[in-house]
Design a protein around this nucleic acid. Structure first.
Lengths: 147, 147
DNA sequence: GTTCCTGCAAAAGATTTGCAGTGAC
DNA sequence: GTCACTGCAAATCTTTTGCAGGAAC
């Protein structure tokens, strides 16, 4: 694979942050590399635990600072799954994105995407006459395993 | 419309809770009556302030207990508008419901409903083969006033 | 050398829990 | 009288902030 196309998410993040005048510290790199490898959203504590398990523990405050920076630059998304429980995940630079189903039984977060849903939201924002920069859709129910 | 049917939300709440073996205390009644009159979602602190302003202050713990009870029985909904910021609103017994746009400029929460969106979510849950009990849609952008 | 990054400890908020007293039925 | 409801204070949990030292450029 690989000619010269489609930058990976990490590369994209690095170039956006560099352009914004940020240096590359160790803690930030580790959070970015970890997020880049995730199939789905993680909480700050899960990120902390995962990095500790890999032998590169970093302070929780740093994790929140990195996440805040990523969200601010539109590079990551915060998914609110409950009172005081946020999870974070990478936003693909291509603009592709997905939504989540949170299972009441097992608590698992399942990702999915759906063009019909995107279309409905487009129509809606046009109808309302508002500018929608971002949308979160969170379904609650039972996943196929728990059904 | 209206012969003798369609119970109001408060009535519905009272009958559901009574059936579940709950008594009717003062604090609970006040929170329920307040929520019944709201056009849109309130935070726990807003509820506390509103009740204090009406001269019937109640403990914040009681507010959270009432809200938890309502959510548990499917009588109210929690809307997560940010990290550590939940708002609550009544769920109409008819099943009618709406979603929200939160304005980045003024922070206002705007309610709307949209049949196209509901349809898209129906189709989606059928396609995924999951049972969706509840869905939250939260748009972020600028409202008409701030546009 | 200057400016940004990091970790630690403390702070700030939101929400929950323990407990003793009060009220509903 | 019994069991649920309430308020207060304390505890818990997530997230943010202040600050001193260390790293990037």
């Amino acid at each position: 694979m690989s000619h010269t196309e489609a930058p990976t998410w990490s590369e994209h993040v690095h170039s956006v942050l560099a352009r914004a005048g940020h240096q590359r510290g160790g803690a930030r790199e580790r959070v970015i590399e970890l997020l880049a490898r995730q199939p789905c959203a993680l909480s700050a504590v899960e990120i902390e635990d995962a990095l500790r398990a890999e032998g590169t523990p970093i302070g929780r405050a740093s994790i929140y600072r990195v996440l805040e920076l990523l969200v601010e630059h539109g590079l990551a998304e915060r998914v609110a799954v409950g009172p005081g429980q946020s999870r974070f995940e990478a936003i693909d630079p291509s603009g592709a994105h997905h939504h989540h189903l949170i299972c009441r039984e097992c608590g698992r977060l399942v990702a999915f995407d759906d063009p019909g849903l995107e279309r409905a939201i487009d129509n809606l924002s046009r109808r309302l006459g508002v500018r929608v920069e971002h949308h979160d859709v969170l379904l609650r129910g039972s996943c196929e395993k728990c059904e």
